[in-house]
């Protein structure tokens, strides 16, 4: 994928994600009292924005400098991280299903998906730091 296309796709995804979170937050905040869900969503929105803004700025800088956003090493890192994340996700889903009677179906799916994303992120950082021998 070309850097410009990646920047465009990433920008659209970021705007959609932040927009969706803000919309959810607005509908939750229109109710009277502050619940834990509102607090969680506010925190999630802030975290997502704090992570996305530097990533977008870096990507834009790379596009301007003509540096590829994806090269041999970054592709390999993603591939390995995805492999590790797959196995950790299997374990996470097994654990979640063991606790299925304590959680509602929607919550179970949300927690499972959130853990999958988190597991990919952690594995990506781990593989990137470790390098390849």
């Amino acid at each position: 994928m070309k850097s410009k296309t990646a920047l465009m796709l990433f920008s659209i995804l970021s705007v959609s994600l932040v927009g969706g979170l803000l919309f959810q937050l607005y509908s939750l905040l229109s109710s009277d009292n502050m619940t834990s869900a509102q607090l969680l969503l506010t925190a999630a929105t802030v975290v997502v924005m704090v992570i996305l803004i530097p990533v977008l700025l870096n990507l834009r800088k790379d596009v301007k400098a003509g540096i590829p956003h994806d090269d041999e090493l970054s592709k390999k890192v993603k591939m390995f991280a995805a492999g590790y994340a797959y196995f950790s996700s299997l374990i996470i889903w097994l654990v979640l299903f063991a606790f299925h009677s304590y959680l509602q179906k929607d919550d179970l799916l949300m927690v499972g998906l959130a853990f999958m994303i988190l597991s990919f992120g952690i594995n990506w950082l781990f593989v990137r730091r470790k390098g390849f021998q």
Binding site: I67, P68, E72, S74, K130, G131
Partner: peptide
Amino acid sequence: LAKRVNVRRETIVFLEKGEYNPS
């Protein structure tokens, strides 16, 4: 060097540290 071989600068850093075997 990164620009000339069309990779990210981090890749050159990894290569110089011997932490990555290139294709």
